[in-house]
Amino acid sequence: MTKIFGHRGSAGTHPENTMISFEQAYKDGADGIELDVQLSKDGIPVVIHDEKVNRTTDSKGFVQDLTLRELKQLNAVHKFKKQYKHAEIPTLEEVLDWASRKQTIVNIELKNSILPYAGMEEKVLELVDKHKMAHLIIFSSFNHYSIARLNTLAPKIEKAVLYMEGIYKPWDYTKWVGGSGIHPHIKAATASIIHRSQQSGVPVRPFTVNDEKTMKRLFAEECAGFFTDYPKKAVQIKYQN
């Protein structure tokens, strides 16, 4: 059964990577949520997509130059100012605390392919262990060194390589770097790639799937899952088939 992941929560309709957005994705019936992790100046894993706060908050600067206290003072309502007065940047700990109570799957994307956050893997794993979430976690990263590192540190937790363009035999490649799944851009997720990969025991979860036609194709192909900004729409399509 194809699993639906709320991409940064319900990012199409709510402020991305905030508790408002994650809670909405859960209410909408998503099987899981996807979020992005950076590190604050004081080394705390925080949930925000960009290396800078410019796009999604009312401030400017690099996440890594701001302490958690400074980040918490920012307003992350992004383009949804009319609907919401305020939304905080959550810590990963806050999201995992909530997700562990809901028992919902969390795809944690480590945003360490542009800035090399030292010790990010260990810090994130520590929080996953603390909240006893290992069975509900999927790690992903465009930095495949990080996937290899995570595999050394936590071989039993599911990991997937993120990629944009064609990789030769990605189902073999992910195993080679220590992953067990693949998360390709939807344009790189052909029917053949999905079929051959899943026949090799490697689940495929493309991103970011927002149109109805593609959603229907992925359900028909029994793709393992996909990431969408509109989980409510995806859930409706899934159950009208």
Rank of each mutant, 00 (worst) to 15 (best):
V47L: 00
V47H: 02
V47T: 07
I48M: 05
H49W: 00
H49I: 05
H49P: 09
D50C: 08
E51Q: 10
E51F: 13
K52A: 13
K52N: 15
K52H: 13
K52I: 11
K52Y: 15
V53S: 10
V53Y: 11
N54I: 07
N54D: 14
R55N: 07
T56I: 01
T56K: 00
T57P: 07
T57I: 09
D58M: 01
S59K: 06
S59W: 04
S59Q: 06
K60E: 15
G61L: 00
G61D: 00
G61I: 03
V63Q: 06
V63Y: 05
Q64G: 12
D65W: 07
L66N: 13
L66W: 03
L66S: 11
L68M: 10
L68R: 03
L68P: 09
R69V: 15
E70C: 10
E70W: 00
L71I: 05
L71A: 01
K72M: 07
Q73K: 14
Q73L: 11
Q73V: 06
Q73N: 14
Q73A: 14
L74F: 08
L74Q: 02
N75H: 10
N75E: 01
V77C: 09
V77K: 04
H78W: 14
F80E: 11
K81V: 12
K81P: 11
K82R: 12
Q83Y: 09
Y84I: 04
Y84H: 09
K85H: 12
K85M: 12
A87M: 06
A87I: 04
A87S: 06
I89N: 01
I89L: 07
T91E: 03
T91I: 01
L92N: 02
E93P: 11
L96I: 01
L96D: 08
D97V: 12
D97M: 13
D97H: 13
D97Q: 14
W98M: 04
A99I: 08
A99N: 04
A99F: 08
R101L: 08
K102V: 09
Q103P: 07
Q103C: 07
T104I: 15
T104F: 11
T104L: 13
